[in-house]
Design a protein around this nucleic acid. Structure first.
Lengths: 134, 134
DNA sequence: CTACACCTTAAAGTAAACTTTAAGTCAAGA
DNA sequence: TCTTGACTTAAAGTTTACTTTAAGGTGTAG
């Protein structure tokens, strides 16, 4: 299989080469082979980058991703770290979804009112009171 | 109605006083009355802060919130800005929910596998391929 | 040969959203 | 009166996730 230059990889995943160097420095992208000092990436890196982007969209920090990848590479029980991370992250993701849905209906309710002040809006106040109960 | 000191407000909403000063400086919290140079908040500020926190959890920047609040105070058509902002933000929120749900099921699928390498995991690869189709 | 695109590094810069620090004010209690 | 605790300001520092810059190397086309 052919290897890829840093800018080829970057273009394929929609990042800048500097981001890839940064990820490598941050320990979430494995250092690729070098030819004349230049990075040559195995196409596998595209999978890794897809995982990184998915995790990032779900609110993982780069540091959490490092845990994720290191766990699979080094731990005695590889899937244990996944389970640990999932146990921590699943509730966080659920909370994130819940909040996003709250703001979503908040925004939609706002579309149906004509209040002059957001702070006085009945819909707003009622929604916040409902939120305070739960 | 009694007024509140900056640290009373901060405690009630789970923020530090410095955050409230910062919000005021950033133009998303109205400057409160002063007594001997100290801020005395009307309890209304709690509603405003609840809105700020809700918006923040939904991915609004402070600058967008400024638009939100200023719009209601100054625009000729108060609810127009709300509609503009909602039109921009609703799709963003929906996309955020979609991605969060994708990572959610990704994490759950990870719980059911024992792959030694995350990059080689069939579940991972299949999910990414499904993602690439849509 | 030289121009050019593309690569390398380390270090500094950026943006958002705050926090911390430094230096000073003020009212109430011992 | 002195001390304590809470407040004030402006400015500098922090974190995350990068980007930009500066200074330089490399290989291929003309």
């Amino acid at each position: 299989m052919k290897t890829l230059s840093i800018s080829e990889v970057a273009r394929k995943v929609g990042l800048k080469p500097s981001a890839l160097r940064f990820y490598e420095h941050a320990g979430i992208l494995p250092p690729p082979a070098r030819v004349n000092g230049r990075r040559r990436y195995d196409p596998d890196v595209l999978t890794r980058l897809a995982i990184i982007q998915l995790a990032q969209q779900a609110g993982f920090t780069l540091s959490e991703m490092r845990t994720l990848f290191e766990g699979f590479a080094q731990d005695a029980t590889p899937s244990a770290r996944w389970r640990d991370l999932a146990k921590t992250k699943l509730p966080e993701i659920d909370e994130m979804i819940r909040r996003a849905q709250a703001m979503r209906s908040f925004l939609e309710e706002g579309l149906r009112c004509d209040c002059l002040s957001l702070d006085d809006c009945e819909l707003v106040v009622q929604r916040l009171e409902r939120g305070a109960e739960s």
